[in-house]
Design a protein around this nucleic acid. Structure first.
Lengths: 282, 282
DNA sequence: AATTAAGTTCCAAATAATGGAATAACCACA
DNA sequence: TGTGGTTATTCCATTATTTGGAACTTAATT
């Protein structure tokens, strides 16, 4: 269940980069100097290996002087690290920031016990995700008995159009929100089942909205299926989802169909508790 | 083994902030606009609860207009989030950045199997940490049978002067590096055993350097002891450590004394492998 | 409705970022 | 040890962004 890696291989031109099929659209967002620096951070953290100065130069076509100073600042702040061979890699200070972000996340704290019981019921991997822009960020994961390497999945941003949680999340967006989001999607064919057009995606979203659950039929990674249900706040300011994931040989579509019920029940319980804890108005 | 929280209670003036006893010295470091923004990020991520605009205003004494734009930019980039009640909290995009930083970290990848075997040998919690500035950032953790909530500790930055890994790390610094680091330390008395002066710390560091291992005698958290050994590259450009931690009632000082050997052996194995993988020169 | 507090917008002045070009360090090979 | 090619770093006049005080809007309180 390693997410990136192999399934990334047949991606497009920039082979060094791991394009999730969304984000990296910093162009419009006007955040001045910060925007440019964050774009660099994104570039380096999402690369599959440390990048040298020249690599980054080529990837950004910024002037040498400018880029050099920007990288220098990021390194000075510990957001990037420069190794002895002159290659830039993500900095460890990011971990310090992120661990706080995770530890205090209300949604995750509320959902945790419900994820555990869904895991007990199904015996397969349970994920919790949130919609951020057009990506799903995984917030928690409950899996098998082996010591869990949590960071391997938690924190990862995956495209919304080819994951169970992502499609479930899309199904509860208002039509206004959907109209804003869809045109910005860059469809990336991860497997032969991946949606590659807004039309086919939109059609399935309609079905998901009616049914209240979504399937991932090996759309992100060959051999991996999942069933998911959306979680949302009344005013749609918060949207996420919960899913059960596993290998296709073990999870027949019939079994997934059965699990739609416990998954939806879990989503409902989490929503109910959120409404109590965070106030019903939103 | 919750790090912050209670032990933080008697900290100094700014009660909302969780001061690790170091860092937050962005003043000298000249990183222009980025420095100011990162300081804000630090402020919000390290606060114990979401902060309102006015709270941050008071904590930074920056002009209203400036602060407002800065926060706006951080929110637009997903580095902070602004909830419906107008409170700022760490943003989830940080998770995405950090998960990459962690997943690809060479040191952690090399150390992982050795940590596992040290855990098997001792049956107690094993930590891996790196020295960054005057903080120890925990990179990995192997503990009991229960599903590990890794983010709870991993990524956390703890002071170097009151943790086993921290003191072990200090013991292999060159005297030049030590002279740079010591004056910047702000000693925070977490327990009655915490070092509160550079003099007493320096004295123990001498002993640790001679012995090759360090103890934490309930210096960071009452009731918690540990034994640690340093890990370093030839040129001291990289410094970290490995430790075994547990409750004082189970870990007598005699037992910790016995464990100095497996801990040091583990550190040595990790160092040897790093020298092979990353080249001996550094 | 009046009053205070909290948050947002505006714009001339101060400051920091830009980017082209020159310089320096590095590396491989003779 | 020198030489050519590659890569990284520094410099500085120009340009664009950030700054911060003040005015303004909005929300909460009496």
């Amino acid at each position: 269940m390693n997410s990136s890696g192999d399934s990334m291989a047949q991606a497009d031109d920039e082979s060094l980069l791991c394009d999730t099929g969304a984000s990296r659209d910093t162009s419009t967002r006007d955040t001045g100097t910060l925007g440019k620096l964050v774009m660099l951070l994104d570039l380096v953290t999402h690369a599959d290996a440390p990048l040298r100065f020249t690599d980054i130069l080529a990837l950004t076509n910024q002037p040498r002087g400018t880029l050099h100073r920007q990288l220098g600042h990021l390194v000075a702040e510990g957001l990037l690290e420069l190794d002895a061979e002159g290659r830039y890699a993500p900095g460890l200070r990011l971990l310090d920031f992120a661990s706080r972000s995770w530890a205090r996340n209300e949604f995750r704290l509320i959902a945790a016990p419900h994820l555990a019981s869904l895991h007990r019921e199904t015996g397969e991997t349970v994920h919790l995700g949130v919609l951020r822009g057009s990506s799903i960020i995984y917030l928690d994961k409950v899996e098998g008995h082996q010591p869990v390497r949590m960071y391997s999945q938690i924190g990862n941003a995956s495209p919304c159009y080819c994951t169970g949680v992502g499609k479930a999340a899309l199904s509860v967006l208002s039509s206004v929100q959907l109209d804003e989001l869809l045109p910005g999607l860059h469809f990336n064919r991860f497997t032969s089942a991946t949606h590659v057009s807004a039309e086919s995606l939109l059609m399935e979203i309609g079905e998901i909205a009616a049914a209240g659950h979504a399937f991932d039929r090996e759309e992100h990674e060959a051999g991996i299926r999942c069933v998911a249900a959306p979680i949302w706040s009344d005013d749609r300011s918060f949207i996420g989802g919960v899913s059960v994931t596993g290998p296709a040989y073990r999870l027949s579509m019939e079994l997934l169909q059965e699990w739609t019920i416990p998954v939806q029940v879990t989503a409902r319980k989490i929503m109910d508790e959120m409404r109590v804890r965070l106030g019903p108005r939103r």
